Structures are given as C-alpha cells and as structure tokens.
Amino acid sequence: MKEIVLITGAGGMIAQELEKKLEKVYTIRFLTRKKERENEFEWDIKKGYIDEEALENVSHIIHLAGANISEKRWTNERKAELISSRIDSAALLLKTVRKKSIRLKSFISASGINLYGTRTTEKIYTEDDQPGNDFLSEVVVLWERAADDFKEQKLAERVVKIRTAVVLSTKEGALKKMLLPIQYYIGSPLGSGKQYMPWIHIEDICSMYEFVLKNPETEGAYNAVSPQHTTNAGLTKKIAQILKKPLFMPRVPAFILKLMFGELATAVLEGSRASSQKIQDAGFHFKFADLSEALNDLLKKNDSH
C-alpha cells in the first residue's frame, strides 16, 4: 500500500509540480475550494468546513495553502487574509486530525524566508536567527507556530517548516513578472538594486519537499534557498543577458514603487541573504545551485512552449 499524502494549496505552482514528483511513490490527495478531479476534496476555510474523507488513512500532510503575498496592495483587510489563509487553514486541519484521532507521520508546512525581516544587511541568516519585527516576519512566525502545534499536541511525529525564498518559475511569481519588461526593453532594477534576492528553482523547491518527506530524521526549519546569492540588479542583468536584451532604462525609484504598492513595496525593495547549509548538511543536493544554469533551464523551456 502506498502512503497517502494530503496537499493543501492545490492551485499553486508548487503543488502542481510536486504531484508529478510524488505520484509514483505516494497516493496524492488535494484539498481545494472547488473539486475538479478524482483526488481532490473540498474545504472552506472561512466556514470551517472540510471533507473529512480527505483525511482517511493519511500519513503525511504538506501544507502549502496561503494567499499570495505580492498579489494585492496590503490593506488591513488583505493583511488579515494573508494571515488567516495560512493560520486558519492549519487550525482547521489540526482540529480535524484531532477529531479523527489521526497520528500523522509528518506535517510539512510551507514558510517564508521573510521570517528574518524585510531589510537589506550583510548578514547571512541561518535557521537559528531570531525573527524580524515587520509584518511579513509576523506572518511567518504565526504560520510556523500553527505548524508546530501538530507536534506539541502529539498529532504528528514530526513537523518540518520550509522557509521559502523567491521561487523561480516562468509560470508565475517574480521571474514571470520580470520577464515582460525586459522583453520589451523596459526592464530595470528596482530601487537601489542592491537588495539581495534569495531564490530557488521550482524543481529544487519540489525536490526539497520530496527529500524531507522521504527522510524522517529531518525536522524543524530549513531555508529553501539556493547556495548562490544575487541582488535584484544581478538577477535583472542575468535575465537580460540570457534573453539577449539590452538594459538601458534607469532604475525604478523606490518612491514610485511605494506610491504604487504601499507597504508591499518593502518586500521587493529590501532583502538579505540566507544560508542553505542546514538542508545540504542533511544530504540534500541542489540541481540548480547556479543562477545562470537555473535561468537558462527555465527560459529555454519557456521558449520551447
């Protein structure tokens, strides 16, 4: 019998790629707002509803659900949604797991590299560093606490938190947004361009989830970030180079981004590096540790579609 893995956040790019990686070894189920496939089960976080059949004989939960941080301006309402989509969803899972007297082998939760604070410093953060004190740090602290509840309440043998950097994919996210202006000769770094942009290739982030799922000795937090560091300007230049497009526009001034996006602008204007040494010490190998190789792989695949 294959072990059953239940994945939340079915619509996201990580969930979709992860299914392809895991389906040979595991039985995959998804929790989604609207059931469209045989292996999908409905839930409604606001109403506190979950199709309990999703949890029958489940061994592992991979919790990827969470509203997109950079999709909309951070109004108070949006901030509440960013928190509740992560925390209330985990709480609903916890309540259902407890009600059904399930003991999970693992609860693996997405988390964010933003835990360390939205600021540009020369420090390279490790998993032992303290959280920052801004909104995104607060979101991640609450998110991880909701995950840790599974261990504390003895509902999971272990909890793993994957502190995710900017995921590079041409399907959605930062890379997709950066490609268009560069292709139309209007690409340029944002603000000073000196802010670090911790990044990871979509294939490596999915491999990391597979790795922690298959290695029961992994536990706690891991930075999901490539070992090679880059800045916003460095990434912009590298994309332009691969696309063979010139970059002659001036940098986008920070004040314009703040006018356009409000507080959300800090998420793109600031950034520090984080270390991936802990996951590598556990035995994980990056396929795309080098930025040029990662971008070449993604942009060439994109060209062939």
Results as ranks from 00 to 15, higher is better:
residue 5 V to L: 14
residue 7 I to T: 06
residue 12 G to A: 14
residue 13 M to W: 10
residue 16 Q to M: 10
residue 17 E to N: 15
residue 19 E to Y: 09
residue 29 R to G: 04
residue 34 K to D: 12
residue 46 K to F: 14
residue 51 D to N: 09
residue 52 E to G: 02
residue 53 E to H: 13
residue 54 A to C: 07
residue 56 E to N: 15
residue 56 E to F: 15
residue 56 E to L: 14
residue 57 N to I: 12
residue 58 V to A: 12
residue 64 L to P: 13
residue 78 R to M: 00
residue 81 E to M: 01
residue 82 L to Y: 04
residue 85 S to E: 12
residue 86 R to G: 07
residue 88 D to Q: 14
residue 89 S to Q: 04
residue 89 S to C: 08
residue 101 S to W: 13
residue 102 I to C: 07
residue 103 R to V: 11
residue 104 L to K: 08
residue 111 S to R: 03
residue 113 I to T: 00
residue 115 L to T: 02
residue 118 T to E: 05
residue 123 K to M: 01
residue 125 Y to S: 09
residue 126 T to F: 11
residue 127 E to N: 01
residue 130 Q to R: 13
residue 143 W to R: 01
residue 150 F to A: 00
residue 151 K to T: 00
residue 153 Q to T: 12
residue 154 K to W: 05
residue 159 V to M: 11
residue 159 V to H: 10
residue 163 R to Y: 01
residue 166 V to T: 11
residue 167 V to I: 05
residue 171 K to N: 13
residue 172 E to I: 10
residue 184 Y to L: 08
residue 189 P to Q: 00
residue 191 G to H: 13
residue 194 K to Q: 12
residue 197 M to K: 06
residue 200 I to V: 15
residue 203 E to P: 07
residue 204 D to A: 05
residue 214 K to T: 11
residue 215 N to V: 15
residue 219 E to W: 07
residue 220 G to V: 09
residue 223 N to T: 02
residue 227 P to N: 11
residue 227 P to S: 08
residue 231 T to F: 14
residue 232 N to I: 04
residue 233 A to R: 09
residue 234 G to K: 08
residue 235 L to M: 15
residue 235 L to N: 02
residue 236 T to G: 01
residue 239 I to A: 07
residue 245 K to H: 09
residue 246 P to N: 13
residue 251 R to E: 00
residue 256 I to Y: 02
residue 258 K to A: 00
residue 265 A to D: 01
residue 267 A to D: 01
residue 273 R to T: 05
residue 276 S to C: 09
residue 283 G to A: 08
residue 285 H to S: 13
residue 287 K to V: 12
residue 293 E to C: 05
residue 299 L to N: 10
